[in-house]
C-alpha cells in the first residue's frame, strides 16, 4: 500500500482508470456498428502523427523533440477517422479503407521518424505504451479528453444507439445521422490517442473492444453492456498496472492478456452453465 503514496504510481493508476473507463464507451458503439477494427486503422494513422509531431518538434528546434508527438497523433487520428467515415458514407468498403490507412499509417510513421533524425526505437513507447513515463501534464490532458469522451459518449447515448442500431430508421426520424456517425469516429480517434500511452498503438483497439466483448456475454441490454464494459475496462487496466508495479512485465500487454483471459473464462463458464441447464431439462 505504500506504493500508493508514490506520485508516479498515482499518475499511472489515475491515467489507467480514466482510459479504462472511457475506452469501452466508444468501443460499445464501434462493436454495435461492426467496426471493431476501426481502432487499429486509426491507431496506425496516429503513429504517423507521432512521427510527424516529432519531425515538427525537431524542425522547430524544441528541447524535447517529441513535445508535439501527442498533438500530432490527435490531429492525424482525427483526420484518419474523418476520412474513414466519409469513405464509408460514400459506400466504400470500410475494411479496405481501414487496411489502406493501417499500412499507410505505420509505413509513414517509420519513414517520418527517420527523416526527423530518430530511430524506430523512438516509436517503441508509442507502439507498446509507456505508462511509467506519464507526467502530471499527461494526466491533465488525459483528464480533459476522458471527460470529453465520457460526456459525449454517455450524454448522446440515446441518439448514438439509435444510429448504430438502425441507421435507416434513424434517418427517417430526422436525426443527423452523418454528424452522429462522425462523432463516433472522432471520439474513437481521441480515445486512441488517450489510450496510446497506456497500451500502445498496437494494442489500443483491445482496450476499447475487449471489455465490450466480455460485457456482451453477461448482459441483455445496450446500456447495461456499456456500464459493465466501463467497469471491466477500469478493473483490467488497474489490475494490469498494479501487477506490473511489483513484476517486471509490460503493462499494456498484461492488460490485454488479462482481458483475453477473462473473456475465455466467462465464455467457458457460461457454456458450462448452459450445458448443465440443458442436461437438467432433458
Amino acid at each position: 500500500m505504500t506504493l500508493l503514496t508514490d506520485p508516479l504510481v498515482q499518475r499511472m493508476l489515475l491515467v489507467g482508470l480514466l482510459v479504462g473507463v472511457a475506452a469501452p464507451i466508444v468501443g460499445t458503439y464501434l462493436v454495435q456498428r461492426r467496426m471493431a477494427l476501426l481502432g487499429d486503422g486509426i491507431g496506425h494513422v496516429a503513429l504517423a502523427g507521432v512521427a510527424a509531431g516529432w519531425l515538427a518538434g525537431s524542425a522547430a528546434g524544441l528541447a524535447q523533440r517529441d513535445a508535439l508527438a501527442v498533438p500530432g497523433a490527435v490531429l492525424f487520428a482525427i483526420a484518419g477517422a474523418v476520412i474513414i467515415e466519409r469513405m464509408r458514407a460514400k459506400g466504400a468498403a470500410a475494411d479496405v479503407v481501414m487496411a489502406i490507412l493501417f499500412y499507410g499509417g505505420i509505413a509513414s510513421g517509420v519513414l517520418l521518424i527517420g527523416v526527423a533524425g530518430g530511430s524506430n526505437a523512438s516509436l517503441l513507447g508509442y507502439l507498446f505504451g509507456s505508462i511509467s513515463t506519464v507526467t502530471w501534464t499527461d494526466v491533465w490532458v488525459t483528464v480533459v479528453l476522458a471527460i470529453l469522451i465520457v460526456g459525449i459518449g454517455l450524454g448522446l447515448r440515446g441518439a448514438l444507439f439509435a444510429v448504430t442500431h438502425d441507421q435507416e430508421f434513424a434517418r427517417s426520424t430526422g436525426l443527423p445521422v452523418q454528424a452522429l456517425n462522425m462523432i463516433v469516429a472522432v471520439l474513437a480517434a481521441v480515445t486512441i490517442t488517450v489510450a496510446m500511452r497506456v497500451v500502445g498503438v498496437l494494442l489500443v483497439s483491445a482496450l476499447m473492444i475487449l471489455p465490450v466483448a466480455i460485457a456482451q456475454r453477461l448482459t441483455t441490454s445496450f446500456s447495461r453492456t456499456m456500464h459493465a464494459a466501463m467497469a471491466i475496462g477500469a478493473s483490467l487496466t488497474l489490475a494490469g498496472i498494479w501487477v506490473t508495479l511489483t513484476q517486471n512485465l509490460q503493462p499494456g500487454a498484461l492488460i490485454v492478456v488479462l482481458g483475453v483471459g477473462v473473456y475465455i473464462v466467462v465464455t467457458v463458464v457460461l457454456a458450462a452453465r448452459q450445458g448443465v441447464r440443458r442436461g437438467a431439462n432433458s
Binding site: 461492426r34 440515446g158 442500431h165 438502425d166 441483455t220 441490454s221 445496450f222 446500456s223
Partner: peptide, 15 residues
C-alpha cells in the same frame, strides 16, 4: 445492429 443486446424498451425509446 452489431450484436450488442438491446431491450425492447431501448429500441422503442429510440423512436
Amino acid at each position: 445492429g452489431g450484436g450488442i443486446a438491446a431491450t425492447v424498451d431501448e429500441v422503442v425509446r429510440s423512436g
